[in-house]
Structures are given as C-alpha cells and as structure tokens.
C-alpha cells in the first residue's frame, strides 16, 4: 500500500465521512482512493472545482458535525490557507493532508519540506496554530491521519498531516487492524437545525468591541494546552549520544540509517531526535539533550526552516548546524555521515 492510500484508509477508519479535494501531484492516490472507497463506506466524496472550494466545503461539512478531510500538495495547500484560517477562527475540526513538493511557485513535484514554516506557523492570516503530524513511514501515514481526526475533534481545530512526496508515493507493508472505529465526540455546537435547542451559529467574526480579543485569548489558551499535552517525538540512541541529529519525515528515515552505521564511520555516538509533532515542537526534549551533547545537526529538505525552532529550543547551549537539500533533492545517508565527520570528527 502506498503512503497516500494509507492516509486515505486511515481517515476512513477514523470515521471520515466527507472528503473534498482537487487533483495535484504527488497526492493523487489519496483523491482516487477516496473517490473509489468513501461512497461505498457511507461517506461523501466531492471533486471540488479548486482547493479553495474544497477547504470551504470542509467548513460546511465540519460545521454540520461530520468528520471531514481534504488533501493536497504545497501549491494547493497555499490556496487552502484562507479556509484553514476560517476553520481555526470558527473552531471547526478538520484534517488537511499535505503531501508537499518543492517550491517556490510551481516548483516541481519532487519531495520537499519547504512548507514547514507555513504548516507550523498557522499558514494563513491571523493568530492561530494547527497541530501538525509528520509521518515518516507508510504505517504512520495511516496512523497519524487517524490520530489527526482525534486531535481535531478533541481541540475543535484543524490538524495537518505533513508528509512529502517520498512518504506519499512509497509502498510498504501496513497493519491496519488496530485502527478501530473511534468513539464519537459530542458536538453540541454543530449545525443540525435548531430543533429542541437554542440555535447554533458557527463563525469567526467578532464585531463587538473587545469580543475578538477575548476570543483570541481563548484560542491561545487552547494552543497552550495543546503545547502542554500533545508534543510527540521519537528519540533513538539519544541517552549516550555525543552528537544529536534532529530530522523529521523522510530526512529522519535517512538519518536513522546513519545512526545504525558502525561508530568508526561516525564522530562518536550519534543520537537522533525525530519530531512527530512539528507543532507543538519538542522544545523541552531538545533543550534537555542540548545540555549534554557537543552539538546538533538539523537535516532538512528546505533552506533551513526547522533549524530556527531547534535554535530557539537549544538557546545557545551548544552549536546548531544545518544540512539542507532543496528543490526536490533528498540528502543521502553518506552526506549526513560526511557532514557529521566534518563538523564533529
């Protein structure tokens, strides 16, 4: 099963009942899988006229209280930002899968992590954040998409599954049986018609003076709670490490390869910290390790975006370096090893 198909399957197992999307490479397997399977499993599939329309269809479906998802790749996700901001402002749950590709502009369809800033900073206008999960295997494409629906409903907030072309296109064996139908969340706020209850209004607009600030404070309190409770990361060989590599998604897989190499080819013991949630970012975990390693190497398929968060977490405790590839290029295990030797050898 491909990563893209796994994401779609994970979504349906999480109870996704509405999908709207617009084709763009390299995520077309998601829209095809949804078109094929969702209507047979009691859901609604719509091929939207644009990414803009798709995300706003989600706004409607989510307002009606239904679990819903869209997927796209970088240029398409840029178009969705308007809707994501509205979803966040109106506190509507939704899942957005971004199988990102290289930019800027049309760029090309090769794998990239160039959307890190957009994903972790909110992306659209206004003060908001979306939890972002970064899968690095096909198995995680299914599991994280499933998890994204739970987080979205728990916090009434859009959640991003931040993949890339590599993890979307590749195939691996996947185990799905443990992704059981979840317990439905109560949604007393949903628009179902005002029968036997006061009417509901779903909106982000706060026109009365002072109300918008109150609304923003409430949102920020929610984001603080997410930061306290939802940070996820994976640590490999970090306890004894002299040097720390920080990488996520595809880069983490390649870095993991290096960690397994014989120590004689590396400058001492190398540990890997892989952020699973890009937001909230594992700041505390990185800061703790920064106290006792010689330095940190961040590996990214962009010009150096996550490295800024790593530096904020490290706060000068040790040097932070960057190995980057851009434009659809993927760093090789050898490159990572060579860089480690050059920096710390």
């Amino acid at each position: 099963m491909s990563g893209n198909e796994a994401a779609a399957e994970g979504a349906m197992r999480a109870g996704c009942r509405f999908y709207a999307g617009y084709p763009i490479t390299p995520q077309n397997e998601i829209i095809a899988y949804m078109a094929d399977h969702l209507p047979l499993r009691g859901g609604v599939f719509v091929q939207a006229e644009s990414e803009l329309a798709a995300i706003n269809m989600l706004y409607g479906a989510s307002a009606a209280g239904v679990r819903c998802m869209t997927s796209s790749s970088s240029p398409g996700v840029s178009l969705k930002q308007e809707g994501i901001s509205y979803l966040a402002g109106s506190e509507l749950p939704a899942v957005i899968v971004n199988i990102s590709r290289a930019g800027p502009g049309l760029g090309d369809i090769g794998p990239s992590q160039g959307d890190y800033f957009q994903t972790t900073r909110g992306g659209g206008h206004g003060d908001y954040r979306c939890p972002a999960l970064a899968p690095s295997t096909v198995q995680e494409m299914a599991e994280f998409t499933y998890l994204a629906f739970e987080l979205a409903d728990t916090y009434r907030n859009p959640v991003v599954v931040q993949g890339d072309g590599m993890v979307g296109q590749m195939m691996e064996p996947v185990a799905l049986d443990h992704l059981r139908p979840p317990r439905p969340h109560q949604k007393p706020w949903a628009l179902t018609g005002a029968a036997g209850r006061p009417r509901n209004i779903v909106r982000s607009f706060r026109g009365v003076k002072g109300e918008l600030e109150k609304h923003n404070i409430k949102l920020q309190e929610k984001y603080d709670e997410i930061k306290r409770t939802e940070v996820r990361c994976v640590k490999i060989a970090c306890e004894e490490a002299d040097v720390l590599v920080v990488a996520y998604g595809t880069c983490a897989r390649i870095a993991r390869e290096v960690i397994a190499w014989p120590p004689r080819r590396l400058p001492g013991r190398v540990g890997l910290l892989r952020p699973v949630t890009l937001w909230p970012f594992p700041c505390r975990q990185i800061a703790e390790l920064a106290e006792r390693v010689r330095g940190v190497l961040t590996v990214e398929m962009n010009a150096g975006q996550m490295v800024e968060d790593v530096r904020l977490a490290v706060e000068g405790r040790c040097p932070v370096h960057l190995l980057r590839r851009m434009g659809g290029a993927v760093p090789t295990a050898r490159e990572i090893a060579d860089k480690l030797v050059a920096l710390f050898g």
């Binding site: 090309d108 369809i109 590599m166 296109q169 195939m171 064996p173």
Partner: peptide
C-alpha cells in the same frame, strides 16, 4: 520480509 518500494514519480 520487510520491504520498501519507492517509485520515481518526478519529471
């Protein structure tokens, strides 16, 4: 066995 399959999908 464990397997991975990574197709070229670029230009």
């Amino acid at each position: 066995k464990e397997v991975t399959y990574l197709p070229s999908y670029g230009s």
